[in-house]
Simulated assay, not measured.
Amino acid sequence: MFNLGTAAHAQDTTKKANAVAKPNPYKRPAVAAQTPVVTPSAATTPQPQKPVDKSLHGQYTYLLTKIYNYQQPLVGALVKNYNDTLKATRKQLKDAQETVTAQAKTIDTLKKSSNNKDQSLAASEAKVNEVSLLGIPINKGTYNLIMWGLVIGFGAIAAIVIARSGAHSREAKYRIKLYNELEEEYKNYKAKANEKEKKLARELQTERNKLDELTGKG
């Protein structure tokens, strides 16, 4: 950025240089007075007066007092272009900040929506994985363990009952076999007893006949 104070000093110096009167050709030239030689260390350079107001408007106002009138529109146009550019840049910066703020709000909204969806999904999964057993909510994994435990338990009980039933069946068959054997022996014994009884009855009848014969003869 150029220094308006330095430019104003240059314009002021130009004015003074142009304001020097032209020499008169009819006037006798004056004898130049001898002036002491000034060393560079003793020479002093005039310092331009700096504006008190350091703002852009203050420097612009100060510059208008140091330039020609025909230069003022050019400087005014330059300052106007600078102000327009500055305003446009500030507007772009403001728009960019508003865009960033809107995007940040959108991101926050999306994050909240994502969190709500995650919570809803977790609740849905928990509801899907939950089973009511006797009015008590139980996790599906626990429910499966309980059901498989009951199935295994009932299977073990059924196996024990079947094993016991098999043992009882074998015992019953054994008892039936013994009964049949005893019945067969009893039948054989009864048949033999009948035969023996008949034999004894015949022998008894024979003895009676013999006794009757002996008694009749006597």
Rank of each mutant, 00 (worst) to 15 (best):
T89K: 10
N116D: 15
E197V: 13
N209F: 11
L200G: 01
V131A: 14
D53Q: 02
D95H: 08
T142N: 09
K217A: 12
N24R: 09
V151N: 04
V79Y: 12
I160L: 15
S41H: 02
T85G: 13
V79D: 01
A43Q: 01
A21I: 01
P25S: 12
D95V: 15
T89G: 07
S55P: 00
G153W: 06
R170E: 06
E197N: 12
I136P: 02
A88E: 05
V38N: 05
T142V: 11
R208M: 14
T65M: 09
A42S: 09
Y62A: 15
T13D: 09
K27A: 15
G216V: 01
Y70T: 08
D95L: 15
A172P: 00
Y179C: 07
T6Y: 04
K94C: 02
S165H: 06
K196G: 09
E207I: 06
T14G: 13
L63A: 11
P51M: 05
N129R: 12
E213C: 01
L178E: 04
L150C: 13
K22S: 08
I136D: 02
T61C: 13
D95K: 13
W148H: 09
V161M: 13
Y189E: 12
V161L: 15
K54T: 12
E185D: 10
A42N: 03
M147T: 09
G141V: 06
R202H: 04
N69D: 08
K105M: 11
K187E: 01
V128W: 00
T101R: 09
I160H: 04
L214M: 12
D12E: 11
G218A: 11
Y82K: 09
K210I: 14
T65D: 09
N24A: 08
V20G: 03
A102L: 03
L121I: 10
T142S: 09
Q92K: 13
V151M: 10
A77M: 04
I176H: 05
N180E: 12
L110H: 11
I146F: 06
G5R: 06
N180C: 07
V37H: 10
D108E: 14
H168W: 05
K173L: 07
Q34D: 12
N188P: 05
T6Q: 04
P51V: 05
K198F: 09
N188I: 14
E213M: 15
P36G: 15
I107C: 06
A19K: 05
L121C: 01
